[in-house]
């Protein structure tokens, strides 16, 4: 399995390379890192523009710029930022903050999708099924920014009032300057995590639970389930060990495919809850026309998406014993 994982990682290298070219071309042709200087009144002296151009390497040819940028990235140097930020250090701090929310949201959404999907498949055309379908449609039509803001502005206050003290926080990823041990810090972070994670999970579970429902229905109607029942296994055991395991394979594919969409959703929830994570970095970089920060963000997200797909591939082998990655 390790050999397979390694091979898959090696295959992703050319993929990421081509992806980096496309991303580089996109940012290069779409943005103008000198715009904020050029548009200034009174005009900035030409020498300043020239200096900025030289600093960002814009005086070189495009392939040369790309090459310099690429070799920099491989050694962990993401290039200069127009705002003078150390992109690498900034990114690694923000990555931890964002991935905390993203991974929790994925777990929550997967569990929700599994429970809802299996329940509505087992009890097809029942009240449970119809309710789940309706809720799924509503979640599918819910703009994530509106749901997040709704939780933040209306639900959070009610919860905190009901309990009598602030338990769920609505601003930031942790309380700045908090004193205390590890446990206090963890509890504080958890309190900040609750609402953004729920918002992010809620908009994603809907489509997944529909997949789970239909793949579970397919499996439940197949011969091996009837055989498992016929040979005397309990209904519960058949459901969990045989049917669910098989029905999880399509869900794995869908979740991996949606990894990019979840990162996008995290940008929005972070904005609503004022987190200082990857989302804020992307929005600031786009506002500042900071080419290198944008590129760093896009490349990191591409790596994350590739990693998600790798995990999905490894999960297939666990779920489907016919697949061997020897």
């Amino acid at each position: 399995m390790y050999a397979f994982a390694l091979r898959r990682l090696l295959i992703s290298v050319p993929l990421l390379l081509v992806s980096s070219m496309i991303v580089y071309a996109l940012v290069h042709f779409a943005g103008d890192p000198l715009r904020d200087l050029e548009g200034r009144n009174p005009p900035v002296p030409p020498a300043v523009l020239e200096e900025r151009r030289r600093l960002l390497g814009l005086d070189k040819s495009l392939p040369e710029q790309y090459w310099n940028w690429l070799t920099g990235i491989v050694t962990g140097d993401f290039g200069p930022s127009v705002k003078g930020i150390d992109i690498g250090a900034d990114l690694s701090r923000r990555l931890g903050v964002t991935m905390r929310m993203v991974i929790l949201a994925i777990l929550l959404a997967v569990i929700l999708a599994m429970v809802v999907g299996v329940l509505s498949a087992v009890k097809q055309y029942s009240g449970v099924d119809y309710t789940a379908t309706l809720l799924g449609f509503i979640a599918l039509s819910m703009p994530v920014f509106w749901l997040a803001a709704l939780l933040k502005e209306f639900l959070a206050i009610r919860i905190n009032q009901a309990i009598g003290k602030t338990v769920v926080y609505t601003i930031g990823e942790s309380t700045p300057g908090l004193e205390g041990g590890l446990l206090t810090k963890l509890a504080d972070q958890a309190g900040h995590l609750v609402l953004p994670t729920i918002a992010l999970a809620a908009v994603n579970y809907a489509a997944w639970s529909r997949y789970q429902r239909s793949s579970m229905l397919d499996v439940l109607n197949s011969d091996f389930i009837r055989l498992a029942r016929a040979k005397g296994l309990s209904r519960r055991r058949v459901m969990v060990r045989h049917a669910l395991r098989c029905a999880l394979i399509p869900l794995t594919t869908v979740v991996a495919l949606d990894a990019g969409a979840i990162l996008g959703g995290a940008v929005i929830t972070e904005r609503v809850f004022a987190w200082h994570g990857m989302g804020e970095m992307l929005l600031n970089a786009a506002n500042d026309q900071d080419v290198n920060r944008l590129l760093a963000w896009l490349m990191v997200s591409a790596v994350i998406v590739v990693l998600f797909n790798l995990v999905a591939d490894l999960l297939y082998a666990y779920l489907d014993p016919r697949i061997r990655y020897a």
């Binding site: 993929l15 990421l16 081509v18 992806s19 496309i22 991303v23 996109l26 940012v27 779409a30 943005g31 103008d32 715009r35 495919l257 990019g260 969409a261 990162l263 996008g264 959703g265 940008v267 929005i268 992307l282 929005l283 786009a286 506002n287 026309q289 944008l294 963000w297 896009l298 997200s301 591409a302 998406v305 590739v306």
Partner: peptide, 21 residues
């Protein structure tokens, strides 16, 4: 497949911030 490796919202933001100023 390549376009799908980058979150589409990020591309939209990049383009939205830059195209046509």
């Amino acid at each position: 497949d390549l376009i799908l490796t980058v979150p589409s919202l990020a591309i939209l933001i990049t383009l939205g911030a830059t195209i046509a100023g």
